[in-house]
Each structure stands twice: as structure tokens, then as C-alpha cells.
């Protein structure tokens, strides 16, 4: 089998995952997109493992580890999402902007106006 097929498929999956991460509004959908990206990498690992005929099978071992870590990640991610949802009543990424500077900037500007 041509190596290019799994490699290109992995690249396209990864790009779709990137798009999903950047474009989705719901945090859970973002997490799903992350899973897509992880799976793209998994595909790459498996394909290269088979291609290189690695004696240690590092690619497949790493794939298994990645799957495990992805499971842990989704668990933790969902816990965080639930916590955010409990405190803020929203699961939208662009509404969780407490670390942003926009409101403070407006406040400072107002303060300066008042001082001047």
C-alpha cells in the first residue's frame, strides 16, 4: 500500500480537527475535534510503524498510549466543562472570557476620562 494514502488521510483529518477546534462554539464539540486530531496522529503512527517494520513496535505502542491519554483527557475535559457550566451556565467557548482585557480597558479609559 502506498504510504501516501494513510499519510494524506491523516493530514486531512488533522486539518478538519483544527477547523473544528477553531470554529466550534460548544466546548464539547471542541473536545470532539481534538479527538479527531488525536486520531489523525494515531493513524500516522500506525502507518509509519507498519512501514518501518519497527522491531519494538514503537508506533503501535504509542498509539495505545495516545488512546489512553485521550480517554483521560476527555474525562478531565468534560469535568472542567461541567464545572464551567455549573458556575457560568454556559458551555460556549467565546463566553468564557474572564481573563480577557476588554472590560478593564473600558474601565481604565473611563477612569482616565474622569481624571482628565
Amino acid at each position: 500500500m502506498h504510504l501516501a494514502y494513510p499519510a494524506v488521510l491523516a493530514v486531512l483529518l488533522f486539518s478538519v480537527g483544527v477547523y473544528g477546534v477553531l470554529a466550534r462554539r460548544n466546548v464539547i464539540l471542541v473536545l470532539m475535534s481534538v479527538e479527531l486530531m488525536l486520531n489523525a496522529v494515531n493513524l500516522n503512527l500506525v502507518a509509519f510503524d507498519v512501514w518501518l517494520r519497527d522491531a519494538l513496535h514503537a508506533g503501535q505502542a504509542l498509539t495505545l498510549f495516545t488512546i489512553t491519554i485521550a480517554a483521560a483527557e476527555i474525562g478531565l475535559g468534560l469535568a472542567i466543562v461541567l464545572l464551567v457550566y455549573r458556575t457560568r451556565r454556559t458551555a460556549a467557548v467565546d463566553e468564557v472570557t474572564a481573563l480577557g482585557d476588554r472590560h478593564e480597558a473600558a474601565d481604565d479609559h473611563a477612569k482616565e476620562q474622569a481624571a482628565a
Binding site: V18, V21, A23, D94, V96, T97, G100, R102
Partner: peptide
């Protein structure tokens, strides 16, 4: 600095877009 602050929206997706 004020102009740069506008980039600091707090929206993680924006940051990530720039990063990627």
C-alpha cells in the same frame, strides 16, 4: 498598549487561531 489590548479578548479560540 491599548491597541494591543484589543487582541486580549479572553476568547481562547482566537488565541489558538493565531497560534496555529
Amino acid at each position: 498598549g491599548r491597541a494591543v489590548r484589543f487582541a486580549q479578548t479572553g476568547n481562547a479560540q482566537g488565541y489558538l487561531s493565531a497560534l496555529l
